Every structure is written in structure tokens, then in C-alpha cells.
Simulated assay, not measured.
Amino acid sequence: MPKLAANLTMMFTELPFADRFAAAGAAGFKGIECLAPYELPIETFKAALEGSGARMVLFNCPPGNWAAGDRGMAADPERVAEFRASFDAALAYAAAVDCPRLHVMSGLVRPGEDRARWIDTYVANLAYAADRVASLDVDLLIEPINSRVDMPRYLVDRTDLAMEIIGRVGSAKVRLQYDIYHMQIMEGDLLRSIERLLPHIGHIQLADNPGRNEPGTGEINYAHILPALDRLGYDGWVGCEYRPAGETLAGLGWAKDFI
């Protein structure tokens, strides 16, 4: 049975961020993920998680100035020092709550810039980060994010490019974050894709399409996909990175067999 993790950046937004942890635990979630915990002091973050009874399974490295349009900076040739300094914060937060996975967002390629140079920078920064976590129980994840709807100009928007980058880094610490919603938009053929990539997948996320709402609101057949993950042998977490169509608890009927 897939293990579901509530994404607190998108779910339970009826509540302040610090209060969403307890709400997720009360709803039955045993895992929690979020985009970025950095708005909370480390001790507040740790206390909120402990109060939930759940464990933190994933969050992102600092993505830059999200409000100003940043969507990561690890591939930006002009921000190498900034990324590497910010990685210290990611490690400090991960250590405080024993989080075993950090998503390293590549960023949006500026118009007219050399994509190959951005890819080279991403590889170098991932290699640096992999060395930093070599002795830690922490994996680094890279996620193809759709560039058609949600993040135009996002560098890593397809699984083949993600796998090329993982191969170039050459570290077992760098794995694939497979988001079903993003890959439905960009590639389709979901179960064959998951089966082919499964040895490299360190985390899966879901949302329906279109709309990025909860399963059952769109075209993706989650009643087939979620049981299939068991058949394929996936034993990791599935992050619920969706925007509830209404109130969060009212939209959890689809998950009653999993939490």
C-alpha cells in the first residue's frame, strides 16, 4: 500500500503553516513534505513536526526568492556561491528533523542563455552537494517539472534530461523525484515510465491533471496507478503535492484506503 505524505505547502492552507503539521497528523498522514520549511525557525519547525506524530520525508533546498520568481538556483552559473552557501541551511534543517531527502531545484533558464552551460553548472553543484552528504543519511533528488503549464523555462522538464544529469554526477546519492502530474503533462505513458525508471526513483509525487487538484478531479487514473506502484515494488513515499479543490479534509475521500 503506498505511503502517503501530506505536502504542507499546498494542503491544509486553511491554517497557518506551523499549524498544518498537527492537522496532517490528525488526518492520518504518517509522512509530511513541504516546499521549504525556512520560514519557521529550526526549533519551531522541529516542534511542529514532533507534535504531528508524522515524519518529515522531503523538503527542498532554498529555492532563492520565490516571491520574486526564483524556482531554484542550482543550475544558474551566476549563483554558484549563493547556492552552495544556502545548502548549509538545508543541511541544518534536515539534521534537526532527520529528513532523508532534499530536492535540489535547477531553476529557470534566462532567455538567450546557453542551456548546456546551465546543465554543466547543475551537474557541478549536485556533485558538490553529493560530496557534502556522502556520510549522511540524506539523498538528493532532482525533479523534472513541466515547462508547458507550471514553470516555463524550467531547465529540467523531462525524465531523459534528468537521467542524463544523474548519470553525469555519478553518485548514488542523487536520485530521481518522479511527479506523476508533471510527467502526465510532459510525457504520459505513466506506468511504463515509472517501471523503467524505478531503480532510480527516490520519491514520487501526485496531483491530478488538469488543475493540479486531488486525485479523482481530472484525467489520471489513480485508482489504477496507486495499486500498480505496489505491484511494481515501489516502497517509498508518495507526496500529495496538490491544491485541494475545496477544504483539504473534504477532499481526502480518495485517500481513505491509504491513510
Rank of each mutant, 00 (worst) to 15 (best):
A92K: 14
D157E: 13
V149R: 14
Y122C: 06
M183L: 13
A54N: 07
L155W: 04
D98A: 14
I142P: 03
A95E: 14
R158P: 00
D157P: 00
D179M: 11
A54Y: 01
H182T: 01
R55I: 03
I180Y: 11
A95V: 02
Y128V: 00
D137G: 02
F59D: 02
R115N: 04
A75C: 07
A162N: 08
V138R: 10
G72V: 04
R84P: 03
A68L: 08
A94W: 01
R132V: 02
A75F: 06
L91P: 00
R101V: 01
L102R: 08
R153F: 15
K173G: 01
I145S: 06
D98C: 05
D114F: 12
E78W: 08
G167Q: 09
H103G: 06
R79L: 10
L161Q: 12
M183V: 02
L136K: 15
H182Y: 07
R132G: 00
I166G: 03
A162L: 15
P77W: 09
A162M: 08
L176S: 01
L108M: 13
V156Y: 08
T159H: 13
V156F: 08
P152G: 09
W66V: 14
N125K: 11
S86P: 03
R101S: 03
D157Q: 14
M73F: 04
A68E: 11
V138E: 08
D76L: 09
P63Q: 15
V133P: 04
L141R: 06
N65D: 15
G51D: 14
